[in-house]
Design a protein around this nucleic acid. Structure first.
Length: 292
DNA sequence: AGACTAACCTGAAAGC
DNA sequence: TGCTTTCAGGTTAGTC
């Protein structure tokens, strides 16, 4: 599930695939929840444009065009962005993906019904493809001066999390610290996996109300958030659900998870059994002994 | 304002 | 085996 590290890894690999190249043609699926800008308008306005840079804000990607327009991309839950030149890409989750024949796995990617955006360029290089089975992802083409309430709502980037600021924001809140870490207006980029991992490193139980978290613990949480995100970026992100890097390979951070998805397994620090608890409609994982 | 819930979507996994 | 239900979660919108 794409959070800040997966989006940042995507940004780094997408940049050389886009920057300096001119759009020859755009293919889309039909209008849906996925398209904040209607697909016909998107195709028309992208054609002939050249990409200038790709930046990341929280979990959003923003690709700037030579006319000042900005292409906003969000991977949602199951988004995959990759170049078409790769030998193969994991289209489905592990079990079904493993059942593909060797021939099918070696075959170059073919656009399917979940390929909502495909950009062809005026050179011989690879196309850029955006798939998203569940369509929780987003595409929007914004005018240069067009305000974005989505982006304006975002808090500071989670890679630069500050304990002091976090403490000031949560010190009166009654909701669980886990839910507060997921609030993108407080800290932009943390999702379910890294919230659990950071709270484990900080030794704070995810159910604890925000106002019961001390200033010192906020420092520990902010430090843990930065550390977990940086390490995940370095390993290519987590490929737990559908996420793949733009070069088609899987990330490796899922192998370094300490608590997420490890209910019943021993805590890596004290060997107590990891517990799972639903907080704000999301599964949360923690060590009952290490996290208080 | 803040807390809480439903809805969006579809494939995998679990249940029967 | 095959059908049905549940689950996954990023984000928004709606209610209280």
């Amino acid at each position: 599930m794409p959070e800040l590290p997966e989006v940042e890894v995507t940004r780094r690999q997408l940049e050389p695939l886009l920057v300096g190249r001119r759009v020859a043609r755009v293919y889309t699926t039909v209008p849906s929840y996925f398209f904040l800008t209607p697909p016909t308008e998107l195709r028309r306005r992208l054609r002939g444009r050249r990409f200038e840079l790709v930046e990341r804000i929280g979990k959003y990607l923003l690709a700037r065009l030579d006319n000042g327009d900005r292409l906003l991309l969000h991977l949602g839950m199951t988004g995959q962005i990759f170049g078409s030149g790769i030998a193969s890409v994991r289209l489905l989750s592990s079990a079904a993906g493993a059942s593909l024949t060797p021939e099918a796995q070696l075959e170059a990617f073919r656009p399917d019904k979940h390929t909502h955006l495909r950009v062809r360029f005026d050179d011989a290089g690879p196309e850029v493809i955006f798939r998203d089975a569940r369509k929780f992802g987003k595409v929007q083409l914004m005018r240069p001066d067009e305000p974005s309430e989505r982006l304006d709502r975002l808090g500071p980037d989670a890679l630069a999390a500050r304990g002091r600021r976090l403490f000031a924001e949560i010190r009166t809140r009654r909701v669980a610290i886990k839910s507060l870490l997921l609030d993108q207006s407080l800290l932009a980029g943390v999702g379910n996996i890294y919230a659990d991992e950071a709270l484990f490193l900080a030794g704070v139980r995810p159910t604890r109300p925000g106002r019961r978290v001390t200033a010192e613990e906020c420092e520990r949480i902010a430090r843990a958030v930065r550390k977990v995100l940086r390490r995940s970026i370095a390993t290519g992100g987590s490929s737990i659900s559908d996420y793949v890097q733009p070069d088609g390979s899987d990330g490796a951070y899922q192998d370094e998870r300490r608590v997420y998805g490890r209910e019943g397994e021993p805590c890596p620090r004290c060997r107590a059994r990891i517990r799972r608890h639903v907080i704000g409609q999301r599964s949360s994982h923690y060590c009952p002994r290490c996290q208080t």
